[in-house]
């Protein structure tokens, strides 16, 4: 089984007056795993359901390979999907749940049984096959849903927050399993999540959405190193990037009566200055005062007031200044991010 290339062209979806997706262009390579990352209500599920064929797009085109599919019934699209609630059929056994897509294709019972067992073995749920969904654990339900999506060997696999109902420990384990399986099978996959660590860990490329719009589509490390705008900068990375709004003058960023020296390549006029807490230090030359210092375990997170703004600085464990103590902010110049007044990234 080999995945297929999936292209979205000018895809849009309106529900009456609600614009769930404004317009989306996306090119997913064959066999690639792409994550849709964004806050709640930004149109991730809607997009997935249009690809699956549940929703009709208001406008735009969907291609699987060279074939246009947006007018096709879901059963003619050859997609498998895992839903957030798993959506297993409660009145059928796990076996019958997984077998369901195959029986609809009128495949011979012996062949159905063989394929169900094979995928169940692969996912480690062979011993649950004669139970009902209500009689197995959440993790097993999640695998059963995955098995049902994969058993028909689809060209495209859609995953809508498949891990959000699992507890934290199983989640990290399931994350790795899904990724390994996906690479093994080579099925083109789209994973919806609002958990950035999940997106960054599992996907080849991540599409970041804000309300109804794609913000950036890039591999995880690029998303982190070169966020395309202030939304992505704020959304990706934890603790979030420090973003200061002010005015650029040659060689400096001006925040009220504070001047922060900046390296060359910065924009002119109003704009944003960004640097991550791990790229900031307390040994610089911008005067400020500590307001909070939290222990995160491996490091301490210090909140600093400079002029009208607050910034966060990650410092090594040994250092935990008391609130009220003066401190001088610095940052690593090579890791600075410039954004213009509209929030768009400037420079490399």
């Amino acid at each position: 089984m080999k995945g297929i290339r999936v292209r979205l062209k000018g895809l849009a979806k309106h529900f009456g007056r609600v614009v769930a997706l404004r317009t989306l262009d996306l090119d997913v390579r064959a066999g690639e795993m792409v994550a849709f990352l964004g806050p709640s209500g930004c149109g991730k599920t809607t997009t997935l359901l249009m690809i699956a064929g549940i929703y009709q797009p208001t406008a735009g085109e969907i291609y699987f390979g060279e074939r246009r599919v947006e007018h096709l019934h879901p059963r003619d699209r050859d997609v498998g999907m895992v839903f957030q609630s798993y959506a297993l059929y409660p009145h059928l056994t796990i076996f019958d749940n997984i077998a369901f897509p195959l029986t609809l294709k009128k495949i011979a019972p012996a062949e159905v049984a063989r394929r169900v067992r094979q995928i169940a073995d692969l996912l480690g749920i062979a011993h649950t096959l004669d139970r009902r969904p209500g009689q197995v654990s959440g993790g097993q339900q999640q695998r059963a849903a995955l098995a049902r999506a994969l058993v028909k060997e689809p060209q495209v696999l859609l995953l809508d927050e498949p891990l959000s109902n699992l507890d934290a420990q199983i989640r990290v384990q399931a994350r790795g399993e899904i990724r390994r399986l996906q690479q093994e099978i080579g099925v083109t996959s789209i994973l919806v999540t609002h958990d950035q660590s999940e997106a960054l860990a599992m996907a080849d490329r991540v599409a970041v959405f804000s309300t109804g719009e794609l913000q950036q589509f890039a591999p995880p490390d690029e998303l982190y190193r070169r966020p395309a705008n202030t939304f992505v900068a704020r959304f990706v990375g934890y603790p979030p990037m420090n973003l200061l709004e002010g005015r650029y003058e040659p060689g400096a960023f001006v925040l009220d009566d504070l001047r922060i020296p900046v390296p060359p390549g910065h924009p002119a006029g109003r704009g944003w200055l960004g640097f991550r807490p791990e790229d900031a230090t307390l040994d610089g030359d911008v005067p400020g005062r500590v307001t909070v210092a939290e222990a995160l375990g491996r490091e301490n997170l210090v909140t600093l007031r400079i002029g009208p703004a607050e910034v966060k600085v990650l410092v090594p464990q040994g250092r935990r200044p008391a609130p009220g103590t003066p401190a001088r902010l610095g940052y690593r110049r090579e890791h600075v991010h410039f954004f213009d007044a509209s929030g768009r990234r400037v420079g490399a």
């Binding site: 549940i54 959506a87 297993l88 609809l104 294709k105």
Partner: peptide, 29 residues
């Protein structure tokens, strides 16, 4: 009945009629 369940059935390949007959009806038994 959950909408996701019906969507799952559609993705699995049912027609409206099969959906009613094999998924929806058994669940409101």
């Amino acid at each position: 009945l959950s909408w996701e369940m019906e969507m799952a059935a559609l993705v699995d390949g049912v027609s409206r009629w099969t959906l009613f007959w094999r998924i929806a009806l058994p669940m409101v038994r």
